[in-house]
């Protein structure tokens, strides 16, 4: 399944002083995949676009604090 966030698993030693983070996530935003923008991509309405920060739905990739999301925080 395609996702804009990728994960990897750092090595955890039994002697690590801090509680090991078993899975790390990083962002791979849509601009890495699209190349030169093709014509006629779907657009947001002008009002939506002003809030989203882009006119193009394909480039919209909002970021939320993953630590808050893990605690059940609610992205607005």
């Amino acid at each position: 399944m395609f996702t804009l966030y990728k994960t990897w698993h750092p090595i955890a030693s039994p002697f690590d002083p801090c509680k090991p983070i078993l899975e790390k996530t990083f962002s791979t935003p849509p601009n890495l995949y699209i190349g030169f923008q093709p014509p006629n991509l779907p657009q947001f309405s002008p009002q939506e676009a002003l809030r989203a920060g882009t006119l193009w739905k394909a480039f919209y990739d909002p970021y939320f604090n993953p630590f808050e999301l893990a605690k059940g925080g609610n992205p607005r």
Binding site: N31, G53, T54, F59, P62, Y63, F64
Partner: peptide, 8 residues
């Protein structure tokens, strides 16, 4: 979040 989208 808006500013981050603009960076993209």
């Amino acid at each position: 979040r808006f500013l981050r989208e603009r960076e993209i």
